[in-house]
């Protein structure tokens, strides 16, 4: 048996803390506000940053919490579940640990403190697709992937143009960088790119699984209370099976992200494959759960008034970002094709 699969103490503690925080500070009204204002809720950001979440993976020497990826993965699910529109996941799971591991002394000193305290906001193009990043316009720091290298830029070194996204509250933008800006001084050390890609992928998977979990919960509640033909619609097998399929897709996807975080933190031979499994299955689950959710909600789910669409649209954005289902499945297919017995890249230890 490898991996704690989310069941150990630190992981549950972090997730519970964050869930309680969001229950208290980010109810439906605040979720809704982010969608109607179209701007980042800096007050909420400040409150979350005060919890130390963005520095969770940073070592205690630099002011972080010093926890491991597998301790953080359940908490990331809670962010997806909460519906909060905040630049938390890439910052905590990718940008901060990558700077600490691959940044020069100067980069670490100038970027880490502000990111860990939450005074500065980060965005990352790693694995998102194109030169796009969520919250790039709001960001003070950009982690940019270019020609298989990673560069760390401050606000004066990049510009942004808002681009269309199914989820406007995640503030998607395309970034532009003058090529003269990129230099040895902005580049992170070798190895950063693969490491960051893996992290971005498992973290996005956990986030997406949290989105699916919320949609499914709403759907189950609706099926229990909505009545037609004189009884709750959840008593009909046709409805039950839609929901059961969605539950299976989601519950079989969640531990894949947990394992991928563990494989990343332990540097296991199957870490890249595990990340691909996590994202392909999270994308699958989000689609199955989203489709079932809208179908079971019927007309009410099709209104702006009902909150389901906030999670559906976030799910749709994340489903195709950070490598689509097809992208990751082709990677897994190629890894299996090239797998030699005992290579450990796909199924280690056999």
């Amino acid at each position: 048996m490898t991996g704690s699969y989310g069941a150990d103490e630190t992981s549950v503690e972090l997730a519970t803390g964050l869930r309680e925080f969001f229950n208290e500070h980010c109810g439906l009204d605040r979720v809704r506000a982010a969608w109607s204002d179209g701007s980042l809720d800096l007050a909420l950001w400040g409150e979350v940053a005060a919890l130390g979440f963005t520095g969770a993976l940073a070592s205690e020497e630099v002011g972080g919490l010093g926890v491991q990826p597998e301790d953080l993965v359940l908490a990331i699910e809670e962010i997806g579940y909460s519906g909060a529109s905040l630049p938390l996941v890439d910052t905590a799971a990718v940008v901060v640990p990558i700077i600490e591991r691959y940044g020069s002394a100067e980069q670490r000193a100038s970027f880490l403190p502000g990111l860990i305290s939450g005074e500065r906001i980060a965005a990352s193009t790693v694995m998102f697709g194109g030169d796009r990043a969520m919250f790039a316009a709001e960001a003070d720091v950009l982690l940019l992937e270019r020609d298989d290298c990673l560069h760390l830029l401050d606000r004066r070194q990049f510009s942004t143009v808002e681009v269309h996204s199914p989820d406007p509250a995640s503030r998607l933008a395309r970034v532009s960088v003058e090529s003269s800006v990129l230099s040895d001084a902005t580049r992170l050390a070798a190895g950063a790119t693969d490491d960051a890609r893996g992290r971005a992928v498992w973290a996005a998977s956990a986030l997406l699984n949290g989105v699916s979990r919320r949609m499914l919960e709403m759907t189950v509640d609706h099926a229990k209370t909505r009545e037609q033909f004189g009884r709750a619609i959840g008593s009909f097998q046709a409805v039950k099976h839609l929901i059961a399929d969605a539950w299976v897709a989601m519950e079989s996807s969640r531990p894949c992200a947990w394992y991928a975080a563990h494989a990343c933190s332990q540097g296991l031979a199957d870490a890249a494959a595990a990340a691909s499994v996590a994202k392909a299955s999270a994308s699958d689950a989000a689609r199955v759960v989203g489709d079932s959710a809208l179908q079971v909600h019927g007309g009410i789910g099709f209104t702006w008034e009902h909150p389901l669409h906030f999670w559906m649209k976030r799910g749709k954005l994340l489903e195709h970002a950070y490598g689509s289902r097809g992208f990751h499945l082709r990677s897994l297919g190629a890894a299996m094709r090239d797998d030699q017995q005992g290579s450990d890249a796909v199924f280690p230890g056999l």
């Binding site: 079989s252 691909s276 499994v277 499945l329 190629a334 299996m336 199924f347």
Partner: peptide, 13 residues
């Protein structure tokens, strides 16, 4: 490859 990868994903899940 996508079809093969789908089975790898399912077995991993």
């Amino acid at each position: 490859l996508e079809e093969l990868g789908t089975h790898v994903m399912q077995v991993s899940k």
